[in-house]
């Protein structure tokens, strides 16, 4: 079987960005990220430059995956929600079907109920876009670096 690639189209990215911007405003959270199931960051709201969104995406995907192994161990099919509480900030992660994770970072002063409700709403809105990405399409050769491009890129 060929597992090609996931494809993200500009108009879909726009829609997803609208959804997470709205989530950010409504829930009064600090940052929102969408991560796919292999740990790639799909998109995020603007954040504090000290937060590296790529790293955050990778770590949350790993964390979420590990938590779901825990779920299986105790006989649950999955945990759809993971919450980490810090002294000042918290992380709320919610599965987007089985295609990705919605990650919300919020301050302790923000009520968790608000985060929970708006995350849930956003997940419902986001799911069709993430499902649409799973097209397993090949890339066009003209967009990809050739062997020669790679050789010349730097001194390997």
């Amino acid at each position: 079987m060929f597992k090609g690639s996931k494809v993200l189209q500009p108009e879909d990215l726009n829609q997803m960005n609208n959804i997470i911007e709205k989530l950010k405003t409504q829930s009064k959270c600090l940052v929102v990220l969408i991560v796919d199931d292999s740990g790639h960051l799909i998109t995020n709201t603007e954040s504090d430059p000290s937060i590296d969104p790529i790293l955050l995406g990778t770590l949350t995907a790993g964390n979420f995956g590990a938590t779901n192994e825990l779920a299986k161990l105790i006989g649950e099919a999955e945990f759809t929600l993971v919450l980490h509480e810090g002294n000042k900030e918290n992380i709320h992660m919610l599965a987007i079907g089985d295609c990705g994770i919605l990650v919300v970072i919020f301050a302790n002063t923000t009520p968790i109920g608000l985060i929970r409700m708006y995350s849930q709403k956003s997940v419902t809105a986001l799911l069709p876009y993430l499902e649409k990405m799973q097209v397993e399409k090949k890339a066009s050769k003209k967009d990809l670096p050739s062997d020669e491009d790679l050789e010349n890129l730097f001194n390997w």
Binding site: K3, G4, S5, V7, L13, I42, E136
Partner: peptide, 11 residues
Amino acid sequence: MTMLNYAKKEI
């Protein structure tokens, strides 16, 4: 799986 992001023109 590779992500082909046509919005950000990124692979």
